[in-house]
Design a protein around this nucleic acid. Structure first.
Ligand SMILES: NC(=O)c1ccc[n+]([C@@H]2O[C@H](COP(=O)([O-])OP(=O)(O)OC[C@H]3O[C@@H](n4cnc5c(N)ncnc54)[C@H](O)[C@@H]3O)[C@@H](O)[C@H]2O)c1
Ligand SMILES: NC(=O)c1ccc[n+]([C@@H]2O[C@H](COP(=O)([O-])OP(=O)(O)OC[C@H]3O[C@@H](n4cnc5c(N)ncnc54)[C@H](O)[C@@H]3O)[C@@H](O)[C@H]2O)c1
Lengths: 237, 237
DNA sequence: TGGACTTTGTGAACAAGTGCACAAGTCGGT
DNA sequence: ACCGACTTGTGCACTTGTTCACAAAGTCCA
């Protein structure tokens, strides 16, 4: 009923699912669907209906009983909450194998982000053109970040450089970091850090693989084994 | 005390952390450290000591009070649990931007995995050499998987192809899939699925960014905002 | 207008995960 | 032997997340 979000705090688990709903809703919108039920949305997002409803309820009561949720409206609501009403400029530090793949990826734009700068420490790489951007020097990082109002950074350097780079980024004013280097990076309080670690993911899969056969039916649930956080909570330095 | 693991079931949250401890222990081993305390290990893994101890206790009681854990022994114990005593052959399906970066990545070998085959649907790509491997045809997927005893696959195709590819993989005998395509993929019971979604990660960061300033001190904890699961539990089809 | 049907929103039970705090071991020195 | 310093292992309280199940609210149609 409350048309106002009110002062609730959105649980962390819910936040991690909002992007999923967002994606599912975009699909609906593309198809021209006007409204979705929690059931349908759950199906599209690979989730269950009760969870969807509870999650959405944290944003306010925007559903209509007997009907469902208005796709366009909910999209606006979620993108507002996620801060996707604008395109965020992003800097990628470390333009190697992975950094280049990310730089060439055109899937970010559709999701609220724009790779705005590429930075590398290797003088041989600086000046090189990758897609529509030229690689800039690590020495100019602070300048690049400040001038273009960059708040979000992706670290794609080798592990040993990651912590140092993170420090530079924070000093330059970056407040959110996505780290691909397989190492623990700490950042001061007030900075968000998430990480993606391929080897870790594979190892988790490997664990359940090793359990093969006897994991199925675990706890009687139909839940697939590999789940939850590959991203560990990072504590302030 | 118990030298035997006994019949405990390792909690999911713990499983996702074992690779972290593993990595931290490898560092210790490299440095020649013989034993680590839970405190030290926690520091290296970006975790807290109590959690480390509790997690390790699920593997059995392998610490020595007053001393800590024997690095080599614990490494063996964890790699055993994670099934890393052998190198798992992995197939990458979709050799585009991302697939190539992954194929060229030499960080897997050090962590118990070996990219054994590259598969793509594009005839123009088939036969192309990427690193030490030649790209093979999607038509030969089943054969490739079967012949080389592949159990783990990485999907790096465009989103629309992901579900179909997953189906083929499962049919071919793959039991664990790591999906990079930003779409929900379902697999039958008995198959593990994890996903990595860049845009989702960035959106989560964006959420906390939007909250900037007022999230700090949330609940009085020092915890950085971006945490928990970017990987949602996938349910069997 | 009314009644059958659909779907939301949420309280409450349950399950999982986290962190504290401390007893119980272990060690090295005396 | 004993002591003091140190560190594990874990019971317990607490927090967070998930699921159920149902009343309330709305639609649709006759
Ligand atoms: N390539 C992959 O598929 C892949 C997969 C998983 C994880 N990773 C991780 O991602 C990171 C990058 O991997 P990669 O394969 O692209 O490595 P890479 O060696 O190809 O590229 C690293 C780049 O970082 C640059 N660099 C080094 N130190 C730097 C610094 N201090 N500041 C800025 N740039 C610096 C190097 O010049 C190089 O261009 C690594 O930590 C790797 O473990 C990569
Ligand atoms: N490139 C990135 O940095 C990046 C980042 C995040 C997510 N992703 C996701 O990873 C996936 C791959 O991205 P990309 O940039 O490498 O795309 P890409 O277009 O460069 O490569 C996709 C490859 O998959 C192949 N392919 C298409 N259909 C196939 C099928 N049915 N079977 C096997 N192969 C098939 C294509 O021939 C192509 O070689 C996409 O889903 C993308 O959204 C990519």
């Amino acid at each position: 009923m409350a048309d106002r979000p009110a002062g609730r705090r959105i649980p962390e688990a819910t936040v991690t699912r909002l992007p999923l709903y967002y994606r599912a809703l975009l699909e609906c919108a593309d198809r021209g669907t006007e409204t979705v039920s929690s059931e349908r949305l759950a199906e599209l997002a690979g989730m269950n209906a009760a969870k969807v409803r509870k999650d959405l309820s944290y944003l306010g009561s925007y559903g209509t009983r007997g009907v469902g949720y208005e796709v366009e409206f909910l999209l606006g609501r979620i993108s507002g909450e996620l801060g996707l009403t604008q395109d965020w400029p992003v800097v990628i530090v470390g333009v190697g194998n992975l950094g280049q793949a990310l730089a060439n990826y055109h899937g970010f734009g559709a999701r609220g982000f724009r790779v705005e700068a590429l930075v590398d420490a290797d003088p041989a790489k600086v000046g090189e053109q990758v897609g529509e951007l030229a690689v800039e020097s690590l020495d100019d990082l602070a300048e690049v970040v400040a001038e273009r109002g960059i708040r979000i950074a992706i670290i794609a350097t080798p592990a040993p450089a990651a912590q140092e780079v993170a420090g530079l980024l924070v000093a330059a004013g970056v407040a959110s970091i996505l780290n691909f280097a397989p190492t623990v990076v700490s950042v001061p309080d007030g900075v968000s850090l998430r990480k993606v670690d391929l080897a870790t993911e594979l190892q988790i899969l490997s664990f359940y693989q090793a359990e093969q056969g006897n994991w199925s039916g675990r706890k009687g649930s139909k839940r697939a084994p590999g789940s939850s956080s590959p991203v560990i909570p990072e504590v302030a330095s």
